[in-house]
Design a protein around this nucleic acid. Structure first.
Length: 669
DNA sequence: TTATCCAAGATTTTT
DNA sequence: TCTTGGATAA
């Protein structure tokens, strides 16, 4: 392992003042964080007093394993490397009493959120249009990410959003009644808690004495607030970020948080990492020139010692079909000439749907490939069903879970029954589950329906007790057999294969749950079912599964998913106006973020980066004419080779080889 | 209450 | 093009 360069070393050693590390793409920021943790531990700060925060589970896992290589097992004991969200969950779990939550907190995912909002709208809360739930869901999320409570939203917002704010208020009250929180609450509630209970904050500040934050440019206002609170006045923290790689503004990320630090912490030290250890010079030159079109608060220029490299190709195709075919054949040729491996290649795109054709094409050519994060494990209905059951068993107030499973498999409890039950529960301000055993219900519903509901509730109670008593995850199997879930899958899937696959997902899920339940992490003791259930909701599982599959496979993923990764050879496809930059971003005048997205894509490449665009593309099933992306025009023409515009001339190829060699020499001297 | 069919509508990124 | 949701029929 090469030595740290002077800037990196400085970043590791500054521990007595708040530190901002501006780390360009490929400049070894993860290394700085991991080395710094090791440095702190070696200096005598116990690992259990250090916390490193990331945005993805993957990043957390990677970081953790790298730290563990630097320290021996004893030393890294108690070290906290986790996502913001799991830290939040942890805080909530331990401090639930202060927030007046019961211990088994349920985590609502995006679809639970929407279902609840729909219900509220249907109940006539505020004058909201049911067709706009998506908008309301986003708005409420934005408020939570922006550290705005319903009360503030109600007073601040214009008439236009007044109803949304009202909805927000009711939504929160309902969540509370269900003893549930949503993703955004995992950050927001701890912050509110810390603001209102200084002694609790102090306890946590004492627990976490040094804080490191990865991808700091992705923090939103609430997350920054959390960082500030935890870091306290001493400002014992290091944040690492790159404003040029901020691509999550749509999710509330505030790259301004980078410069905000300077105001909030006058003693802040700033270090720039500009040496890139990933890409060849020409790739960096192209990337630098592209991103120079964006305004900057911190100027930064990446350079590398890895040689200059070949021109970047730009391929033109007549439609997306040919794009896929030609890219795949280009990839095959390239691999043949270079003698590389499939996992050296990545195909990056703007939207997930673009992967389809490529998948097809790769399969036809018998090329192994791997798609990262297209359909999340948790969007599979069978997984949601099983999770729904578990959630209900852990927390009977969880209406979302109740609605999900009450009639799956069929129990002859249809929408009419549920609607009446819902109205009744709402009137009495109790959960659906509790409403089932109320005597007054028989006045609203026919005898038969009440009996069916009662039967379901009795079964739930019985099973919940069983699980609590035995504290044994094997009970999950018993439960699944009892409800005949396997049978139901068989009857309800289109093909026997689909049923088999679904069954496998269920067994996998249950298997993981069991494993997590029995102290998979040596540091932690056995977990209760409720802990496991909410932990699992944070998507830990899916990503773990992905991990085993990256060998000898071409990677396909969105530009967003590619952040933090690197590949020797990158194909950046669909470089078209309205696609990258995406139409919505053009309309909302947010080209800069799209440019950063392109920048992220280019800077993934180590040795070669190939662009492609189509002249025609099918959208909504109709063929449209398309134009090459404006970003291609922003790149230095001398470093690009447009294969269609100027067919390759063998003479030129030679010249180019010479000139790049010359360039290399000047760079090295 | 459930199943099926047809039409309309949506396509960005996700912890 | 594909998915989702609504309406209608059994």
């Amino acid at each position: 392992m090469p030595k740290l360069n002077p800037q990196q070393q400085a970043a590791v050693k500054i521990t007595e003042q708040p530190l901002l590390v501006l780390a360009g793409a490929g400049s070894g920021k993860t290394r700085v964080i991991t080395e710094k943790i090791a440095y702190l531990v070696n200096k005598g700060l116990a690992a259990r007093h250090i916390a490193a925060l990331t945005f993805t589970n993957k990043a957390a896992r990677e970081m953790k394993s790298r730290v563990e290589k630097l320290l021996d097992g004893q030393q890294s004991r108690g070290l906290r490397v986790s996502t913001f969200h799991s830290l939040g969950l942890d805080i909530l779990r331990r401090e639930h009493k202060i927030l007046d939550y019961k211990s088994a907190i349920t985590l609502f995912d995006e679809s639970d959120k929407k279902t609840l909002l729909k219900n509220l709208i249907n109940q006539g809360i505020a004058h909201c249009d049911i067709d706009e739930v998506d908008r309301y869901a986003t708005q409420i999320g934005a408020w939570k990410n922006g550290f705005i409570t319903p009360e503030q939203a109600l007073t601040d917002s214009e008439k236009l959003d007044y109803d949304a704010a009202l909805l927000y208020q009711h939504y929160n009250r309902n969540l509370k009644a269900y003893n549930a929180v949503d993703f955004d609450d995992l950050i927001l509630l701890p912050v509110l808690l810390f603001k209102h209970a200084p002694e609790t904050l102090e306890k946590w500040q004492n627990k976490i004495r040094y804080l490191l934050v990865d991808e700091y440019q992705d923090t939103n206002i609430t997350q920054y607030e959390l960082v500030r609170l935890l870091a306290g006045n001493l400002g014992r923290f290091t944040v690492v970020g790159d404003d040029d790689q901020s691509i999550y503004a749509w999710r509330g990320a505030q790259p301004e948080n980078l410069s905000q630090l300077q105001t909030d912490y006058p003693r802040l030290k700033v270090i720039k990492l500009e040496q890139n250890y990933r890409s060849m010079g020409r790739i960096l030159k192209v990337a630098n020139q592209l991103i120079a079109n964006n305004p900057h608060t911190f100027e930064k220029r990446l350079w590398s010692e890895l040689g200059y490299g070949d021109v970047l190709k730009v391929l033109t195709h007549k439609d997306e079909q040919t794009e896929a075919q030609q890219i795949v054949s280009e990839l095959i040729h390239h691999k043949f000439h270079q003698g590389g491996r499939y996992h050296d290649y990545a195909i990056l795109y703007r939207g997930n749907y673009q992967s389809r054709l490529f998948e097809h094409c790769l399969r036809e050519n018998n090329i192994p490939y791997f798609i990262s994060g297209s359909t999340s494990f948790f969007s599979y209905t069978e997984v949601k069903d099983v999770m729904g059951y578990l959630r209900l068993l852990v927390n009977q107030e969880d209406d979302a879970a109740f609605l999900r499973v009450v009639n799956t498999p069929r129990r002859e409890i249809g929408p009419t029954t549920l609607e009446k039950l819902g109205a009744y529960a709402n009137e009495r301000q109790i959960s659906l589950f509790n409403a089932c055993s109320e005597l007054g219900l028989s006045q609203k519903l026919p005898e038969k329906a009440v009996i069916r509901l009662k039967k379901f509730c009795d079964w739930t109670m019985k099973t919940a007790e069983l699980i609590e008593r035995e504290n044994n995850f094997e009970t999950i199997d018993t439960m699944l057999t009892e409800i005949g879930y396997e049978q139901w899958l068989k009857e309800n899937s289109k093909t026997p294969e689909a049923a088999k696959r679904q069954q496998k997902n269920v067994t996998d899920l249950v298997g993981w749950l069991k494993k997590m339940g029995t102290s998979e992490d040596a540091a932690e003791a056995d977990k209760s079912l409720s802990e496991v259930v909410s932990k699992v909701m944070l998507l830990d599982i899916l990503e773990r599964q992905e991990e085993d599959e990256v060998e000898e496979q071409v990677s396909l993923m969105t530009l967003h998913a590619a952040k933090g990764l690197e590949f020797p050879h990158v194909f950046l496809i669909g470089m078209e106006e309205n696609l990258l930059p995406h139409q919505n971003s053009i309309e909302n005048d947010n080209i800069e973020e799209e440019r950063r997205l392109a920048y992220v894509g280019i800077t993934r490449a180590q040795r070669s980066c190939t662009f492609s665009y189509c002249t025609h593309r099918k959208r909504y099933g109709e063929v449209f004419e398309t134009k090459p992306s404006r970003f291609l025009d922003e790149l230095p023409a001398e470093d690009l080779e447009w294969t269609a515009k100027n067919p390759v001339d063998p003479k030129k190829v030679k010249e180019r080889g010479k000139s790049s060699l010359a360039h290399l020499k000047t760079m090295l001297s």
